[in-house]
Design a protein around this nucleic acid. Structure first.
Lengths: 129, 129
DNA sequence: TTAAACCTTCCCGTCGCTGGAAGCTCAAGC
DNA sequence: GCTTGAGCTTCCAGCGACGGGAAGGTTTAA
């Protein structure tokens, strides 16, 4: 099938699919006319990468996961380790953002927000700390 | 003062300070020898940007905030609006990550993680959904 | 036949820097 | 005076993960 159909089935834009091919993530056959030709199996792999990306895995991690996906002799422990690492990263990122949110809320709470120029937010950003 | 000193005082790497100048965020005087020359006021502005970036504001938002910082006739309402918008963005991002975390946790929880190849994480990523 | 809808490759832009190369200036030690 | 090393300058390239758009070939439907 053509890239457009593979795009619809996998949910990935054609541009992204071509990019994945360029970086060697998912290759495609070629027809006589130079068009890429995708099999159902290719589409499943594209779909797999799509979901993994949505779950926060980097393209390089997707490459790892894809090779595990393809590997019938994989150990689930290896997959789990990758997922757990990613989970920790997400948790760390959340913690960072929550802390940011608290700082920003503190500033916003103290700003009266009217037509006067004195502003605790500006002062907070300028702060000597 | 030279860029190195301004860097130490503001906490921003020299490369970053040069970059900010390149994009017209914070300009510097020049000495006879071509070296950049920073005043204490410049350093305060660099520091301001540093803090704003740390709080999650984009460089373009820093540009806005900086012009408000400089503007003695600003209305604090305008600053507050920017901060509130950013706060919403951070909250949205947190919500996204929390949902991601839940999905990933669900997969990880169901994976036994041993030497066998069957793996609910891989299956979840491949999932027909 | 012709127009629209696909497909191809190629290159540039995004965002916010960071690294490195090549070359100039300055301060300190001998 | 000379050298060494640190610090400064500019410029170019690259990161991640694409997206936009140009220029051109192919296919399909009317």
């Amino acid at each position: 099938m053509n890239i457009g159909t593979a795009s619809e089935k996998s949910g990935l834009p054609p541009k992204t699919i071509r990019y994945y091919e360029e970086i060697g993530l998912i290759r495609a056959d070629r027809r006589m006319n130079g068009y890429r030709d995708y099999s159902e199996k290719d589409v499943r792999r594209l779909h797999f990468v799509h979901r993994a990306r949505d779950l926060g895995f980097s393209v390089e991690e997707c490459r790892q996961l894809l090779s595990l996906y393809d590997d019938e002799t994989r150990e689930s422990a290896e997959v789990k380790a990758i997922a757990q690492t990613k989970l920790k990263e997400i948790e760390n990122r959340i913690a960072e953002l929550v802390s940011l949110k608290a700082s920003l809320e503190h500033l916003v709470r103290n700003c009266h927000g009217d037509d006067r120029p004195d502003c605790p937010i500006i002062e907070g950003l300028a702060g000597r700390s």
